[in-house]
């Protein structure tokens, strides 16, 4: 059935294709674990895409570009944080507005950056490792962000599960009143989580404009932020499932295009909708059933906190 498609190349491609979604989703997971619903992922991603692009072009250094992307995303998320945490605005509305604002602002910053090529982000030189047949192509021939994205997922998982910091973060997300009573600074913790989410989304956006498409055009993220948001929910707020969901989505997207290019006799419209359908289906089946997974949403998700209540 996979006639003519080299699985090693396919897996290598899907790992690259999934990076922006993994980064944005893992950031949003931390934000939501802290009890904040930030729907502005798309806006933060595209701000990261343009800030990263501008920084990389200005300095000629792709690493600084990624840093710039993360800072751009974090700064935009700061607006969201101040509005929702200090002025207690509605999180859903503020998040949506953040997306619109990010799209517009990035378009404005991006004036004059159309058609410029950013400095290339090279593959990490792993020497003879990348010459191993198949495995070398899959595991040892990527740029550093691909590896970083997996490490970040692992780190978030470990921190949430095993550390005191993770426990505090989750406590704030489950019951901010209880956390407050215990003496934790709910607002400060949430602000930090929001900024982490913004930085990750920005990093993901920068990956699109610096590596995946290597150029700037308005609206370059084209909805990746919304996919990331959906994956957080369908992955029932679990880091490794986010990795799985993103790889599934990215993998099937790449696979369906490869199947088309290879001339597989499957109607194209089924192929086109398959990434959405299969990703949702798999994650829904995994999180259904009697386990705790189905009720894994942080209890205080989307609720504003004020110490007087």
């Amino acid at each position: 059935m996979l006639g003519g498609i080299n699985p090693a190349i396919l897996i290598a491609s899907l790992m690259v294709a999934s990076v922006p979604i993994i980064l944005a989703a893992i950031g949003e997971l931390v934000v939501e674990k802290a009890g904040v619903l930030n729907l502005g992922v798309e806006g933060m991603m595209i701000m990261g895409a343009i800030c990263g692009f501008v920084t990389a072009v200005a300095t000629g250094n792709p690493y600084l570009g990624f840093l710039g992307g993360a800072v751009g995303g974090a700064l935009l998320s700061l607006i969201f944080g101040v509005l929702t945490q200090y002025f207690l605005s509605n999180q859903v509305a503020t998040g949506l507005a953040l997306t619109l604002f990010g799209l517009g602002l990035s378009s404005m910053i991006g004036q004059g950056y159309n058609g410029i090529k950013p400095p290339p982000t090279g593959v990490v030189p792993l020497g003879p490792l990348s010459d191993i047949p198949a495995l070398g192509r899959i595991l040892f021939s990527h740029d550093w962000v691909v590896y970083a994205s997996i490490l970040i997922v692992a780190a978030v998982w470990a921190v949430l599960k095993y550390t005191r910091t993770g426990l505090i973060l989750r406590a704030v997300g489950e019951s901010h009143d209880a956390a407050h009573a215990l003496g934790y600074k709910v607002i400060r913790i949430r602000m930090l989580a929001i900024m982490f989410g913004g930085a990750m989304a920005g990093l993901g956006g920068a990956y699109i404009s610096l590596v995946r498409v290597p150029q700037w055009t308005d609206g370059i993220t084209a909805g990746a932020g919304w996919i990331a948001l959906a994956i957080v929910v369908f992955a029932s707020w679990r880091p490794w499932r986010i990795l799985l969901g993103a790889y599934l989505f990215g993998g099937i997207t790449v696979l369906q295009l490869n199947l088309q290019a290879a001339g597989a006799a499957i109607p194209v419209q089924y192929l086109s909708m398959s990434p959405y359908l299969i990703t949702i289906l798999v994650l829904v089946i995994m999180s259904s059933g009697k386990g705790r997974a189905s009720m894994n949403a942080p209890a205080a998700l989307g609720q504003n906190f004020h110490a007087s209540r």
Binding site: A17, I208, A222, N258, A261
Partner: peptide, 20 residues
């Protein structure tokens, strides 16, 4: 690609063709 404008998807489509 079933889109007029989606740079990431267009890049993926080109990549799929090149892979083939």
């Amino acid at each position: 690609a079933f889109t007029w404008f989606d740079p990431a998807k267009e890049a993926d489509a080109a990549k799929a063709l090149i892979d083939q």
